[in-house]
């Protein structure tokens, strides 16, 4: 973009040369752009996945809360919880794929993530079935698994051992 602008100012000088450089420019930028687009999903580290999962779990708690108090329409709550379940499950898979420096620690994290994901799933089922008690239980489960995750996270990144 910048280079294109420089062309603009030095402009009219040689139009065909300009067009040629522009093509070269695009050729240079296209891979970068593609890289930028694709890197969004692939370059996430375990740490980012855990942060994302923790945030998503909190959102699941909030949605369940909102549904329990009648503030969120069931359709929205259900599809939001479904989406959060998928995000959590996906985070679990990503952590599994992360560098296996210490399998025990990684296992703790991915267990916590699995627990979160299934709790979110249960919350969604409860919302679909309009069972408030179950939803409340799923919410407590989410909170518990959340603190598991926090512990596992601290161990995962602790410097000792």
């Amino acid at each position: 973009m910048v280079a294109a602008f420089i062309f603009m100012i030095s402009s009219n000088c040689n139009e065909r040369k300009m067009a040629g450089s522009a093509i070269r420019l695009t050729r240079a930028f296209l891979p970068l752009l593609l890289l930028a687009l694709t890197s969004c999903s692939s370059s996430e580290t375990a740490e980012q996945q855990i942060k994302l999962a923790s945030s998503t779990a909190q959102a699941a708690v909030m949605v369940t809360d909102a549904w329990l108090s009648g503030a969120a329409p069931p359709r929205y709550a259900s599809s939001a919880l479904q989406s959060f379940t998928e995000t959590l499950a996906d985070a679990g898979r990503q952590v599994q794929l992360a560098s296996p420096s210490d399998p025990a620690r990684r296992e703790a994290v991915s267990t916590a993530l699995g627990r979160l994901s299934s709790a979110a799933k249960r919350a969604q089922t409860a919302v679909d079935a309009e069972q408030h008690a179950q939803a409340g239980q799923a919410q407590r489960e989410l909170r518990a698994a959340q603190s598991d995750l926090a512990t596992a996270y601290r161990q995962y990144f602790s410097p000792d051992r």
Binding site: L52, Q58, M62, A66, G70, A71, A72, F84
Partner: peptide, 29 residues
């Protein structure tokens, strides 16, 4: 609302309505 509840990564548009629900309830949605 979001940050204080620990929802720090707003990557999912389903999280957005949560901004107003705790304040206005159903009308927030």
């Amino acid at each position: 609302v979001l940050g204080a509840h620990g929802v720090t990564q707003v990557d999912d548009y389903n999280q957005l309505p949560l901004m107003l629900i705790p304040i206005f309830g159903f009308w927030g949605f």
